[in-house]
Design a protein around this nucleic acid. Sequence first.
DNA 1: GACGAATGCAACTGCAATTGTTACGTAAAG
DNA 2: CTTTACGTAACAATTGCAGTTGCATTCGTC
Lengths: 143, 143
Amino acid sequence: MKRNSRLSLALHTLSHMAAEPDRMRTSADIAEHAGTNPVVVRRVLGKLREAGLLTSEKGHAGGWKLARPAHEITLADIYLALDERLVSGNGGDPAPALQCSVESGLQARVSEVLHDIEANLVERLRETTITDVHPSTCSYCAS
Amino acid sequence: MKRNSRLSLALHTLSHMAAEPDRMRTSADIAEHAGTNPVVVRRVLGKLREAGLLTSEKGHAGGWKLARPAHEITLADIYLALDERLVSGNGGDPAPALQCSVESGLQARVSEVLHDIEANLVERLRETTITDVHPSTCSYCAS
DNA sequence: GACGAATGCAACTGCAATTGTTACGTAAAG
DNA sequence: CTTTACGTAACAATTGCAGTTGCATTCGTC
């Protein structure tokens, strides 16, 4: 795979789940369908569970399911659950001690703009639920 | 440095240039001021030149300058010039040949949503010019 | 014309993040 | 108790990017 694979995998899987909310899916199923590894699936879906979007159950009849109605899960929920922080560098630059005394002002201003943009992105993502990202029919859902 | 360093460096440099559009800056100057390497600076600024935001001149009195007025350069220009493509995976997944026949439909839909989000982000970025991202005074500009 | 200063570019190294993989522990159903 | 599945840790492989070096090129200046 490549970059943004987590977001892509999450979107993909949740979209399928939105069509059949009651069906219990195992990480092996999902992994095979997504062309990746069960452990990778559990890593990504684990984040979504921490955010309260999914539930998982162990044991014989275990697997993954939506934790709440599909129309109550927005793309922002997914984005935030994966804590990707696309635009604003996710942490703090350790303040590289530049000589320019006013440099910190500019840096702060840039961070402010990036943060603003990020907030706007999330706001935009909140307008779309996973039911909106779903084809009408799918053989995987029907099978 | 770390992630988003290119965007940060570009914003930083262009913001300084916006204050003194006629001053010719060498990559060595910029690099020292930004705490990085001249080659890195030329790599990043080279992208901006390809996009028509900057001009560079070789030789003894060479260096970098804005190619057009600062108030006509938006954050979207910079973002697009660096072709970062934050949300939508920048290339094409080589179509991993999934068995699910309708899979391509969902994949297309997901790409569509991501693309839409990206477009919205760019639209938002277009509202801010580099003159807006600039502290009132700076020792570097004054020196 | 020769020299110095600057960009342009290619190759290489080193580092960090991510993915893929294996292995093992744990919990639940049968 | 066996099977199934998640949970997690540890490791290898890959990738992307910053940093670095080196050299060709181009333009001013002497």
